Each structure stands twice: as C-alpha cells, then as structure tokens.
Computed example of a mutant assay.
Amino acid sequence: MSSEHAQISLTLERLWQFSLQYYSVREVKEACLALQNQFKGNVNLLLLLKWLDEQQVCFGEQDWHRVEECLGRSEALLLNFRELRRKLKSQVPDTVYRESLQFELQLERQQQSDLVDCINSIQLEKNLGEPLTLRYCRQLGGERLYSAFAEPIDNIANL
C-alpha cells in the first residue's frame, strides 16, 4: 500500500444505488446472505468495501476497527428487527410482512449512512494491495465466498 492519498466522492445515494444494483446479481446476493448468515458478516460493510475496491482505494490498517465500530449504533437494532421479522413471517398478513421488509431496508440505509460518514472522515489511499472485500471475507473465515465478489463491475456505469 502506498501513502498516496486518494480523493473520492462518496455519498449515501451513490452507495445505496451501487448496493441495489450490485446486490441484484444472483451470485452476489447468495454470497452476501451466506456471509451474513454463516459467518456473521455485515452486508452493508461488504458493499461499502466493494465500492471502495471499485474505486481502487482503501483505508489504513489502523482504521479497520473504526469502520467496523461505526456499525455499532445500528447493528443491534437491525439484527433484532431482522430476527423478529423472520419469526413473524408465517404469522402476519403478507402486507404487514412486506411493510416490515420496507422498514428493514430503511434501517439498512441508515447503516449505510453511518458507513458513508465514517469513510468520509478518514484518510483514504490508493489500494495497491489486495482488495478490501477479500480481506473482510478472510477476516470472517469466509474466504471461499470472495470469488462472488472478485469480478469488477464494469457493466454498471457511473457508480
């Protein structure tokens, strides 16, 4: 990794739109859900890391904890709500279930907002090393999932 600083323009809307498009790829969605359910990973963090990989930038080793820490405010709420929604799925009308999914998406968006604020407050550098998504998958013990995230997103314009 070089000490050459990198300037990027990350907004919540940019990350959110990127996430919606990227997550819509079946293999990516399946790998994200496996990362979340089998390895206790955070999909929003992975999507942010993929966006940074696409920009060919990274943050320093000393900032990993800070980035993960910014999830703390919303992670417990999101996990608890997701578990409740799953339990209620067969017990509530379909319309109520769909509304709960919409609320969960709002919580996801808030978590992404926290991540954007965090990333915009730390110094980024050109990434000359391995991708952040690979490092995160390896950190969780799910390195085999990385192949689903390895391909560049050159067919999604302007994200």
Rank of each mutant, 00 (worst) to 15 (best):
S113D: 10
L71S: 02
K126A: 12
L15S: 00
V116G: 00
G72R: 14
I156F: 07
E143I: 06
L101Q: 12
D94E: 15
F103Q: 04
C70N: 05
G60P: 02
W16Q: 04
I156G: 00
D94I: 08
K29E: 14
I119Q: 03
L84W: 04
V25I: 15
P131T: 05
K29N: 14
R109L: 10
L15P: 00
R144T: 14
A148G: 07
R73K: 10
H65W: 08
D154Q: 11
N42K: 04
L84Q: 06
L48R: 02
L115V: 03
N44T: 07
E125G: 06
V43S: 01
I156C: 02
F59E: 01
K29V: 05
V96Q: 12
Y97W: 09
C32M: 03
L12D: 03
L77E: 06
V67L: 13
E108P: 02
H65C: 06
L105V: 04
A76Y: 04
D114N: 13
S19F: 00
K40I: 04
S90N: 12
Y146A: 09
N42P: 03
R138A: 08
R26E: 14
L88H: 10
V57I: 12
Y146R: 10
L115K: 00
R85T: 07
E61K: 14
L45Y: 05
Y136I: 04
F81T: 00
V96F: 09
L52V: 07
H5V: 15
C137N: 04
L20T: 03
N120C: 13
A157G: 10
Y97F: 15
L101H: 03
S90R: 11
L159E: 00
R14A: 13
K40W: 06
E75G: 03
L48N: 02
Q17A: 07
A6T: 10
F103L: 13
E68P: 00
A31D: 06
S3K: 12
R98V: 09
L132N: 08
A6L: 12
A148S: 14
L132S: 04
